[in-house]
């Protein structure tokens, strides 16, 4: 069995001090295999966003260990952390978070630029990533000229352009209508079918049902962990 992409042990996150202390995570342990498609569900305040931010190395846990592709993230310095975010993780936000007034292709190129890829190669790979999400013809458009679904697909292209070990999506369909949701989810299905590991947060059951494995988070703890399809299976079968 290959090394797990994600290995989290007894993760805790505490906000505030004294009376105002909030235990966002109360000891979460989780292992995710390569090629898996994991959905995390939970009501608001259950700690799912906190967990996601820690998994994406955007935030640091109060205690617990987090191994990303075998590397202990808590031991990394700022520079190496930046490298880990760049090479190992593709993060997709609920609010898209594209750089404003910058064309779609330039947005997708950004992680490659920080990775030090040459401009020509960068352009080629960015266009290829836009092709995957079906937006090659909108490469020159700026974010405010794209619909919500298109913006999110640009964000997906940006997340996968560095070919990271892990795609993290924080409620990627939360701001989208049902058609755009279907577009984005089918992109996820294709990516997973191509072997990418995906972890996403959602509160919509139809999104959760398409994943191969479903986790429910309540009050900062995992209460359900259900495998809906084997890791090697084609994604999305279960839902249909």
């Amino acid at each position: 069995m290959s090394r797990p992409v994600l290995d989290v042990r007894d993760l805790k996150k505490i906000y505030g001090e004294g009376e105002a202390t909030v235990h966002a995570l109360r000891g979460v342990s989780l292992t995710v295999e390569r090629g898996d498609y994991l959905a995390i569900m939970g009501s608001s305040g259950s700690g799912k966003s906190t967990l996601m931010n820690i998994l994406g190395a955007l935030d640091i846990p109060t205690s617990g260990t987090y191994r990303l592709d075998g590397v202990d993230v808590s031991k990394l310095a700022d520079r190496q952390l930046a490298l880990a975010r760049n090479r190992l993780i593709g993060f997709i936000f609920q609010a898209f978070n594209l750089i404003p007034r910058t064309s779609a292709v330039a947005n997708v190129e950004l992680p490659l630029a920080y990775a030090g890829v040459k401009p020509k190669e960068r352009r080629r790979r960015a266009m290829a990533a836009l092709e995957v999400v079906g937006l090659a013809d909108r490469a020159r458009h700026e974010p405010n000229q794209l619909s919500g679904g298109q913006q999110q697909r640009v964000a997906v292209a940006r997340a996968l352009v560095t070919e990271p070990a892990l795609l993290l999506a924080d409620e990627p369909t939360g701001n989208l209508d049902s058609r755009s949701t279907a577009d984005v989810l089918s992109v996820f299905d294709e990516l997973n079918a191509a072997g990418r590991t995906i972890v996403l947060i959602t509160h919509e059951t139809e999104v959760g049902d398409r994943a191969k494995r479903l986790i429910r988070l309540v009050d900062g703890q995992i209460v359900h962990d259900v495998r809906q399809a084997p890791v090697g299976a084609l994604a999305g079968r279960h839902a249909r």
Partner: peptide, 16 residues
Amino acid sequence: TREIGIRKALGAPRRT
């Protein structure tokens, strides 16, 4: 600042 956050999330080092 938000843009800086996005850039950091994409893996931009502080120095850059």
